[in-house]
């Protein structure tokens, strides 16, 4: 359980980080390292070069600007879940961040790391998809923006190129919609077995559900959400039937069941969040 040898860089600026990524073969960015280091300890991840971006404080800001909340890639889960702007505009995201791992994981793990790692059972990729976020990918050649929905390919696979750094994620400030979140894990702090973000319009029944833990990536499905619980249950079941689940039949059935239960709870929370205001 010891990593292989690697070269270590601790760039002092974003430009320096991007230069290193452009020049070094098999380089890997380390931010919080809470997913990466276990994989390195197992020697499943074997980067030749590690680029430590923890010193780039410019990536650690949360700011609202022009109808968008921009969350720097280095924002740690523990900061995210308590940040006033996040709590105000994205309570479901704050709630989800609170479910990540344990305290000692949340104090170090970052939103950027979680998004790039792209574990299908992780909260933040799903949260980003649910809130129709945009990922800002930067390289020595410039910047590109990718819709969250297009960023996640599948199990631990994303659109990021080897020379790119995820610098921020931008979430449009919600207007006329509310969000709810729920998940089910075997033990608190474990990766979710299944979970859901539910979006409901303040007027009418338009909505969307973003599922995670069932398929290989978070899936957002728009749907008219019936006000009747039984019909909603059937809607969720039908929507989940379209997702590719785990191979094992019992496990797949179980994940879908949990996801449906989570979606209903998330729906109730979304509705309740409106009452509070």
């Amino acid at each position: 359980m010891k990593p292989i040898s690697f070269s270590y860089y601790r760039p002092k600026s974003l430009a320096e980080a991007l230069d290193i990524l452009a020049q070094e073969e098999e380089a890997k960015v380390i931010a919080g390292g809470q997913s990466l280091v276990p994989l390195m300890n197992f020697r499943l991840s074997r980067p030749k070069t590690l680029v430590d971006i923890n010193g780039l404080r410019e990536l650690a800001a949360v700011e609202a600007d022009g109808g968008v909340l921009r969350i720097g890639a280095l924002v740690r889960h523990q900061e995210l879940l308590a940040h006033p702007l996040v709590v105000q505009h994205f309570p479901a995201l704050a709630a989800a961040a609170a479910e990540i791992g344990h305290w000692a994981i949340r104090t170090r793990g970052t939103i950027g790391g979680s998004l790039v790692h792209a574990d299908p059972a992780a909260e933040l990729p799903a949260a980003t998809v649910a809130h129709r976020g945009v990922l800002v990918l930067t390289s020595a050649h410039g910047e590109r923006r990718v819709d969250a929905d297009a960023f996640f390919y599948g199990y631990l696979m994303t659109d990021i190129a080897p020379d790119e750094l995820l610098t921020a994620v931008e979430l449009p400030l919600p207007s006329g919609v509310r969000y709810g979140f729920a998940e089910h894990a075997r033990r608190p702090g474990d990766f979710a077995l299944a979970g859901a973000f539910v979006e409901v319009a303040e007027a009418g029944h338009a909505g969307a559900v973003t599922w995670f833990g069932v398929g290989g990536r978070p899936d957002r499905q728009e749907m008219e959400l019936s006000p009747d619980a039984a019909s909603r249950g059937r809607q969720f079941a039908a929507a989940l039937a379209e997702l590719d689940g785990p191979e094992d039949e019992v496990e797949a059935r179980y994940r879908r069941q949990l996801a449906a239960v989570a979606a209903e709870q998330a729906y109730q929370r979304a509705i309740a969040s409106g009452r509070g205001n």
Binding site: G33, V37, P38, D52, Q78, I105, T107, R108
Partner: peptide
Amino acid sequence: CEQGVCGSCTVLLDGQPQRSCLMFAVQ
């Protein structure tokens, strides 16, 4: 465990609890 699960290696980094098995000393 060196898997980030058991918490036996927890230390404070700038006052915050963190897993010392999930961090390189250089960091």
